[in-house]
Design a protein around this nucleic acid. Structure first.
Lengths: 265, 265
DNA sequence: TAGTGGTCTAGACCACGAC
DNA sequence: TCGTGGTCTAGACCACTAC
């Protein structure tokens, strides 16, 4: 047996005691290539977040409680939580506890909104929705969002301004099925907060592809620049906690007094 | 005393046994706000790398040896090394050891060169140096590189191509004093490798600011596009292991068949 | 077989926050 | 005062690499 002390102090765990996303288990003799215990713990905790056991902003049980419940040592739970803290999906506060990360404005500003004023200040732009439509996705949209061919999507087009001046014009594409009723209510500026609160979908990671392009006629008009003016095109695909693509966003940004900040570490 | 077991198994360490970058010490009763031990270990190890005790590619002593030498536990050394591995300044290989990270082409390609072909392939462009000059830095250059006013700098201008087609035209500014004789030898494609091997300066981190701009006449000519064509302007400031700015690089990139890839995690 | 990093445990004390 | 996460230690066993 690869985990000799398991039955020592506490009674042995039965995986079925809890929810289907069960307690982690060592593979004992099975042919499976077993992941480290702390990664199994991590996945158990993430699964619970996906399932809504703990909502954003809520505290997780303490390390000691989690360790007892899952039948592992506190150190193993700690390693899992430390890794999750490094991924920004959990926030740890000494003396208080460990909390599911929220998509508040601060997090958006530092993790997901890379456009910074040339003065170095991080501003959050206002935004105005220009239109919402439901449609069958194009081939590109369905491919990006891992939907079946001609799957239903939701498209949102909005203009984002700073100090009244146009800064970004963008089109977002979402899987329609994942966000029922989204088109029927006003769309807030902080969309990721809405995804989390209303739909229990947490955006944890995104991939952005940038190009410099000349503004087409429509884009130029919306941004109040001449057609062909240089524009930063940002193509973002956002993923939820379990790795599902959740949103495809193509933004045309003016960079005359803002820049895209990227830290290479 | 805050570290009771220090004299247990091994003989107590004397900081002066080794080099001036001494072993970490707990502050015992002093008014100093002491950093955690594992961070002191980390800084000791980084200092040794900066001082050239271990060159890139070379193995560090084993965790056990470092722990004994520094008078801390193996777990503390491990935490320091794990953090350094996460920062890409060290590479750990099970069964072999821990090595100072090298600036080989692979690292450049994944950590510092964010331009990726639209097909998803990571290509490393060829490069041709157009000119090298020594001069007194402009106000902007001296400010960026933390040099005194009118400090001496080295400027390198080069054209980077892929499959023979122009891709990037860039100007690099370096503190002249930091790289003596650099202008007198041919400049390799992989500059960070040269900084490390010849000058013992390791670039560990960089900050990039991106804008979309219209190509000016000179840039357009070099990149073989029309003046005013949209170009991705990448302004990079690179820092060495100890946080000193080492290189300022302004690149104008064509993004018709390449894009800048940014992972938001 | 010996040595390395990787995982896991157990237990101690500290710093911080809430009460 | 108590409970939390943060640090540090000590020691066990495993997986991989080299010889």
């Amino acid at each position: 047996m690869s985990k000799p002390n398991m039955t020592a102090g506490a009674e042995p765990r039965r995986a079925q005691d809890k929810a289907p996303p069960a307690a982690p288990q060592r593979s004992e003799g099975e042919g499976l290539e077993s992941k480290p215990l702390y990664r199994q713990v991590r996945e158990t905790l993430i699964r619970r977040m996906v399932d809504g056991v703990w909502a954003p902003g809520e505290p997780l049980p303490s390390e000691i409680q989690l360790a007892a419940e899952l039948g592992v040592s506190q150190g193993t739970v700690r390693k899992a939580l430390d890794e999750m803290a490094a991924e920004n999906i959990v926030v740890r506060r000494q003396g208080r506890g460990t909390f599911v990360a929220r998509h508040d404005e601060e997090r958006i500003l530092f993790q997901f909104f890379k456009l910074v004023g040339d003065d170095g200040e991080r501003h959050f732009p206002e935004s105005r929705v220009l239109g919402i439509e439901k449609a069958r996705g194009t081939a590109a949209e369905c491919a990006a969002l891992a939907l079946p061919r001609n799957g239903r999507v939701l498209r949102i087009r909005r203009l984002r301004t700073f100090d009244g001046a146009p800064l970004i014009i963008e089109t977002l594409t979402l899987p329609d099925q994942m966000f029922p009723g989204l088109a029927d209510a006003p769309v807030p500026n902080n969309l990721y907060g809405l995804y989390a609160q209303r739909y229990g979908i947490t955006v944890s990671r995104a991939r952005e592809q940038l190009k410099a392009v000349g503004a087409d006629a429509d884009t130029a008009a919306m941004l109040q620049v001449a057609p062909g003016a240089p524009v930063l095109l940002v193509d973002r695909l956002a993923f939820s906690l379990d790795g599902t693509p959740v949103e495809w966003r193509v933004s045309s940004c003016l960079t005359s007094s803002f820049h895209y900040l990227s830290d290479l570490t």
